[in-house]
Design a protein around this nucleic acid. Structure first.
Lengths: 246, 246
DNA sequence: TAGTGGTCTAGACCACAAA
DNA sequence: TTGTGGTCTAGACCACTAG
């Protein structure tokens, strides 16, 4: 009947004090050494409890100073951005795709800046339409740093999505997203079969591998047929969210 | 020039092997005791490295069996949805708001369903415009379960945002988001001072407290002036993502 | 100088899996 | 029985901060 490990008990105890208001934001939390005395645990155990509370956003620790209750204020809600093929599969619908453009190009200023390469450097350019049960649901415009894209011209992106292909050749470590609403131009409207006054939900995604930008994509979705269904809030608060780049 | 702590070096080494493909999903990762021998660290240090890799989703550990590379498959990217006032403050701009509607109403079918209350039950209805340096940036249409909204008519929502007020009276535990692109109706267009062909980025948010839906909000943003600047992917994969409700 | 967190060690006991 | 992860201990050294 030995319930929780000691470090978990310690965590629960401190979380309880915070949620009951006995410990308020910016209040001092007992130091590791104090917990050694008061809770009768070793310092490593106290350290693990406080370190995990820090990782989970309940407290903030400053070496040489102490441990303090975090002011949680803006619990940052999160929203998931799924791969379109996965999203469709999750709905048990059928995914299909048509390649419109598949070629190597010279990087424009915008693309070069986004991918941190020289203007005019070689990039792989891809344009394709994703369909859900034969209805266009996403126009994917993607640029990949050429050196990361071996055999890119031999790939059949109707069978393997660019996203799946990329994660196979360069395991992504970081990603950056922007979501906008915008009116499509005529070409996009045509490919997505949009009405005249129908806006697009645009997801702009940049992915990184080994500290290097690898891919830049603009994903256009019909406003009437697509939504980002985010969800839930974790109890712990996320802390700093360092940008991969300045 | 003592670079990284040993457990971090160990983590990097293993992450490197995974990302270079030397270790593939479901492959066995050296056990703690093996790392004690091969890496020349103590078992606690090896344990911390593997434990953190587990927390971050790189590997999966099974007591009594071993540690294995996780099959990461669909790394779900996340996107942050910030409180508008915080977002503006973060940009060091000035936030202001104007209340358009503030009254108690009977719940419509849609609102009643969203908030899990009876049709015709009393709800607090709020409509206000948020401005960033005097430029309209968000139209907030919010409904709050009346029993959760004491003194709602006495509140001055120009001074305290509904979001801040809510989190003060009912600490939110879960939230659900949807993001869409849509054309605004005339009233919304007027309040946000939109052009004729300018779409809106619409965030629909439902918040929960103590297992009860508390608030339902539609947040309209000018497509030309607003984007959800989501970011980064945690290296770790989120494991379970339980839905707050069926 | 004293206290803090950050790290590391070399032991230890346990429950559990597989052989 | 052997090996695994899960936990815990009682020390230790370090860099940093504050008084």
């Amino acid at each position: 009947m030995n319930a929780l490990p000691r470090y978990q008990q310690l965590k629960q105890q401190i979380i309880g004090q915070i949620s009951r208001g006995e410990l308020k934001p910016r209040d001092r939390v007992p130091s590791e050494n104090e917990l050694v005395g008061s809770a009768g645990v070793s310092r490593m155990t106290a350290n693990r409890a406080l370190r995990e509370l820090n990782d989970e956003g309940y407290v903030e620790r400053v070496a040489g100073v102490g441990t303090f209750v975090a002011d949680l204020q803006s619990a940052s809600h999160v929203l998931e951005v799924r791969n379109i093929a996965d999203e469709i599969a999750r709905r048990r619908h059928r995914h299909s795709a048509t390649v419109i453009t598949q070629k190597n190009e010279r990087a424009t200023d915008e693309i070069a800046t986004s991918l941190r390469i020289d203007r005019g450097a070689s990039v792989f350019h891809l344009l394709l339409v994703h369909r859900e049960n034969d209805v266009p649901i996403q126009l994917e415009e993607r640029y990949v740093v050429a050196s990361f894209a071996p055999n890119c011209m031999q790939q059949d992106f109707c069978r393997q999505t660019p996203s799946a292909w990329l994660s196979a050749i360069a395991p992504l470590q970081e990603a950056e997203h922007k979501v906008r609403a915008a009116m499509p131009n005529d070409e996009i409207r045509k490919h997505l079969q949009l009405g005249d006054r129908e806006p697009c939900l645009v997801v702009i995604r940049r992915t990184w591998s080994n500290g290097q930008p690898v891919s830049f994509a603009r994903l256009y979705h019909p406003g009437s047929r697509f939504e980002l269904t985010g969800h839930y809030t974790p109890p712990g608060i996320r802390k700093s969210t360092p940008e991969p780049a300045p």
